[in-house]
Design a protein around this nucleic acid. Structure first.
Lengths: 122, 122
DNA sequence: AACAACAGTAGAGTGTAGTCTATAGTTGGT
DNA sequence: ACCAACTATAGACTACACTCTACTGTTGTT
């Protein structure tokens, strides 16, 4: 599929997809049999990757971290050992975030109690 | 205390503290009895606030969201009802983040299994 | 009096992650 | 043949959250 279809499938603008492509997260292929243009073609794997990128972004991973994960997942840039190391690193980071968020929930719940119990009467 | 001491207590640079002050998150007081300078003076509450800001940043709240929370906590800018609304909103956001992170943990654990089970032999 | 270390303000610069503009070429439908 | 809608590239622009620079004034120690 071309970028327009990919854009519709993923909800990301062609601009943003090209930005991710330039950042090395996804990669279209050129059809060498077609000589009149040099359009990029994308496969279903790219759709998956872009969906993953969206999810990974919202948990706070940066583009370069997402790049690492994608490389550890789809590519052969890293050895098996390196891949596991990268993925473990990300799991630890997520575990830390999880704890921080739970702490923050407690804290804000406490603020709420303070407001309710009328420590200040507004 | 002056900004230097505050900086040491919180681990934030005077630059960053001034940035937060300009953003409305904290507020120093000027000592009108001193006429030779116009240095800002900060209290322990500001130390608390800055520590909160650090924690809130790492769970992904923006400066303006943190501002809202601080206003709902310390100030009388909002009514009791508004305060509870803001805090509930933040709790919902944290709950959402929590779920997303748990999902991402599952996903990355799955990637790990894929690597281990040797779907690709590197 | 000299000087480092501090204080303040204004504004420029950085990095991240887009988002948009300009330009130029291609494709598909009428 | 024409035109809208698509494609590509390069580079400008934006927003956020700092971070730093330049400049000036103050304080405390020697």
């Amino acid at each position: 599929m071309l970028i327009h279809e990919l854009s519709i499938k993923t909800g990301l603008s062609p601009h943003t997809i090209r930005f991710y492509e330039k950042s090395g997260l996804v990669k279209g292929k050129r059809d060498i049999t077609v000589k009149s243009n040099n359009y990029f073609h994308y496969d279903e794997e790219t759709v998956e990757k872009l969906e993953f990128i969206n999810d990974a972004k919202s948990v706070g991973f940066t583009i370069s971290e997402i790049g690492q994960i994608i490389d550890a997942w789809y590519n052969n840039k890293y050895s098996k050992k390196e891949k596991l190391h990268i993925l473990d690193e990300k799991l630890v980071a997520l575990e830390t975030k999880l704890k921080e968020i739970k702490e923050m929930k407690k804290l804000i719940s406490q603020f709420k109690q303070d407001v309710i119990s009328g420590q200040c009467p507004y």
